[in-house]
């Protein structure tokens, strides 16, 4: 096999694929964070916990109800989304008039509660979740073997991101959403139920996180910490991309995943910190973020 920059090609492509997969999760999660922040002005610190819930609900559906991966892909986001709606109605909605930092503190507390409960129930070690039979195996691409499930994750993530973008940019409800982000009072004056729109937005953002969780379940082991480790990196991704643009957060998510993958090949010691270094550089050069508005 050929070498590229002195690195065996399979290793390089393998890490690139892993980077792409991580990037898919960064993109899905930062997308949800950006949509929620745009509408509610709340940074949803519980996003990681809700991602983890998605994976656990998928596992529970299989374990207790015998429902397979495909059911989980639909049911888990719905269930966790409804949970999100309840959280928004009962707690988060009370904070809109206060400093935005209270939303951060509240959702941080909610994240601790959710993670703690799952850790009590299922311990800290991971639970296995099998790749569905339709998606197991690997394709021989000539230069590398590509596990079918990983290709599926990247493809579905891209489709979901484009779908979310289309909903926000091209549909009527998306136009309400964009208008409320700009000026909620005016939109409300036109007779649109903005509080309900906010509830639905939060529910949808949470459902997106849970969907990512189901996708992640067969790749990473299902464990209570899987979300909190990811969410801090996603915060950095959001700071790098800026939360102004939907496509921006998607591109940033995938891009950083790839950068992280490449770092694993060329300088593995820095792979855990490279995203934070990129964040520092972006903050120095463009404080508003790559796609952000100052």
């Amino acid at each position: 096999m050929d070498d590229i920059f002195g690195i065996p090609a399979p290793l390089l492509f393998g890490q690139l694929l892993l980077g792409l997969i991580n990037g898919a999760f960064y993109a899905l999660l930062s997308l949800g964070l950006a949509v929620i922040f745009g509408m509610l002005n709340v940074i949803n610190f519980a996003h990681g916990a809700q991602f983890m819930m998605g994976a656990f609900v998928a596992w529970m559906l299989l374990e207790y109800a015998g429902l397979n991966y495909w059911w989980a892909l639909i049911l888990a986001p719905l269930l966790v989304g409804v949970f999100g709606v309840i959280l928004e109605r009962t707690m988060i909605a009370r904070l809109y008039k206060l400093d935005h930092l209270y939303g951060l503190l509240l959702t941080f507390g909610l994240g601790l509660i959710i993670e703690g409960i799952f850790r009590n129930q299922y311990g800290s070690s991971g639970l296995p979740y099998r790749i569905p039979p339709q998606l197991s195996g690997a394709w021989d691409l000539g230069f590398m073997y590509m596990p079918v499930y990983r290709g599926w994750v990247v493809a579905v993530a891209v489709v979901m991101c484009i779908g979310t973008w289309l909903v926000i940019e091209k549909t009527k409800i998306g136009s309400y959403l964009r208008a409320s982000t700009e000026n909620a009072a005016l939109v409300q004056a036109f007779g649109i139920n903005v509080p309900r729109l906010m509830t639905l937005t939060y529910g949808a953002g949470v459902a997106l996180a849970a969907f990512a969780g189901v996708l992640a379940a067969p790749i990473y082991s299902v464990n209570p910490q899987m979300g909190s480790n990811l969410i801090i990196i996603v915060f950095a991704v959001v700071v790098i991309g800026g939360m102004g643009s939907i496509l921006g957060s998607v591109i940033t998510g995938f891009g950083l995943g790839i950068i992280e993958g490449l770092t694993k090949v060329f300088y593995p010691e820095a792979s855990a910190t490279v995203i934070f270094v990129v964040m520092a550089i972006v903050l120095l050069a463009r404080p508003a973020g790559l796609f952000g508005r100052a």
Binding site: M91, R94, L95, Y102, L105, L106, F108, G109, L110, G111, L112, I113, I114, E115, G116, I117, R119, N120
Partner: peptide, 14 residues
């Protein structure tokens, strides 16, 4: 303990 700390967070903020 984590759960209780989370509950205190939520109660304090609300």
């Amino acid at each position: 303990v984590t759960v209780i700390q989370g509950v205190i967070f939520v109660l304090c903020v609300l």
